[in-house]
Write a protein that binds this DNA or RNA. Structure first.
Lengths: 140, 140
DNA sequence: TTATAAATGCAACTCTATTGCATTTTATTT
DNA sequence: AAATAAAATGCAATAGAGTTGCATTTATAA
């Protein structure tokens, strides 16, 4: 993605333009799989770990990323493709490959009826994590 | 639940009978909400943290508990009511209350068709986490 | 009752994530 | 373009979650 596009995207989300944020956002754009803090630390050794953590947090707060609960411990993050700051649409599914360990957002929308909940439970949002073998691993 | 019942349950899962395991299992039986390591540490200060961790792990390995990915960081565990060692049925949903922070297993079975996945993805299992307000919180 | 295999407690350690603070950088205003 | 205020960064320290090794104790089965 072009520099000016990245810049625009940050500005749209009311985020200041910094080297770290530009690099991290570009990294997200270039990867279809969800990204962990570990990935970023390995890739961007020139930035402090803390800065990378704070970058993820600010991106998440400003609706650029969504957090995906990690399998064991550490979380991963995915780009919010169809979201804007006002309305998040997180009702897609996350596919976690048990072979390569990657997590990926699958754009198939997920519908679970609130009617299936017991009385007096109110649904706000839903996270669906599908475990299995991803396309890359199944073709090897 | 009676002592003898707890004992039988542990034996069924090929787990040795110890004080810690009996107490922890009883605690799970008495609570409808999912249990965190923190809950256990607070409740059972007479047992070492490590022992409680290992108790959870052995319960999980032997099909007595299932692990539910925590909101931020620490995981919680739920009793496997309808599971046996041979066949786990984890396709129920987990309800996480954004008000009181509790997580709970809801017995409504969840069906997501593998057909909704893109080509060459193979589904093995699925975790559904519904966020919202639980019955207790909505009536307060 | 004894033998052995497993569970426990303790200490140390690893990994993940956060906080405080001084410094630097960004964006805005003049 | 320079000055200013607000925000981001880097570093060090700290907090929290979870694990490992090992000596000791306990449970089960012979």
């Amino acid at each position: 993605m072009k520099y000016s596009e990245l810049k625009k995207s940050l500005k749209n989300h009311k985020l200041r333009i910094t080297d770290c944020r530009m690099d991290v956002l570009e990294y997200f754009q270039e990867h279809t799989k969800a990204v962990s803090i570990k990935d970023l630390e390995d890739k961007f050794q020139e930035y402090d770990r803390v800065t990378l953590y704070r970058t993820l947090h600010s991106f998440e707060e400003n609706g650029l990323l969504h957090k995906i609960p990690g399998d064991s411990g550490s979380a991963v993050y995915g780009l919010c493709k169809d979201c804007d700051v006002a309305a998040h649409h997180h009702n897609h599914m996350h596919f976690r490959c048990t072979s390569c360990g990657s997590t990926e957002c699958i754009d198939t929308p997920v519908e679970i009826k609130a009617a299936t909940l017991p009385d007096n439970y109110e649904m706000a949002s839903i996270d669906v994590i599908v475990n299995g073998i991803c396309n890359q691993c199944s073709s090897n």
